[in-house]
């Protein structure tokens, strides 16, 4: 059994993505992406019964996904960004995870106590950058890292590497 990850998105526009995007436009007008989406990313560690276990947990706990405001899917079934007017856009995902995180720990404790048949859960935020066609993948990837990793006041925004891990999950839909 391996880990199974899901992503969760708001049905209405995500306010954090909106603010991040307008900040990028203002301070990094040259490198800012053309589209930015934000998702909750939940990784369930070693669920015994595979996807059924995860589906069961998701439908049981509205704290994780409330179907009245959010939609979710398994990470590998999640193919199309919401607004994909240009088929040739380049999409890059970056995942930001707190190195120490109470939410993950608490849900691990709750799911274990309630015999949900997982070893634990790890919460992250997944940011999806979209760039209009004409940019190389490597170039886009470098831009994403520059925009994400905040090392100085005038450099990067989405993650503080002192307390957060940053990784780029394998591209899913290029």
């Amino acid at each position: 059994m391996g880990n199974i990850s899901i992503i969760v998105r708001l049905k209405s526009p995500d306010p954090a993505a909106m603010t991040a995007m307008s900040t990028f436009r203002r301070i990094y007008p040259e490198t800012c992406p053309d589209s930015l989406e934000r998702y909750d990313y939940w990784c369930f560690l070693n669920p015994c019964l595979g996807r059924e276990t995860v589906s069961g947990i998701v439908s049981r706990y509205h704290d994780i996904v409330n179907p009245n405001k959010q939609t979710w899917s398994f990470i590998d079934e999640f193919s199309k960004p919401v607004d994909r007017s240009d088929d040739r856009m380049v999409w890059i995902d970056v995942r930001v995870t707190d190195r120490v995180d109470s939410v993950s720990e608490n849900w691990t404790a709750i799911l274990r106590r309630n015999r949900c048949e997982v070893e634990g859960v790890l919460c992250s935020v997944l940011w999806r950058f979209g760039f209009a066609s004409g940019i190389s993948f490597d170039n886009a990837r470098n831009r994403v890292l520059d925009l994400t990793v905040s090392t100085r006041r005038d450099h990067g925004l989405l993650a503080n590497p002192v307390s957060q891990k940053i990784d780029l999950p394998a591209p899913l839909l290029i």
Partner: peptide, 17 residues
Amino acid sequence: RGRIESALAANHISGRS
């Protein structure tokens, strides 16, 4: 000068967030 060398991260409390 100008470098971010610390973070104020989410509270870490057992059983609470």
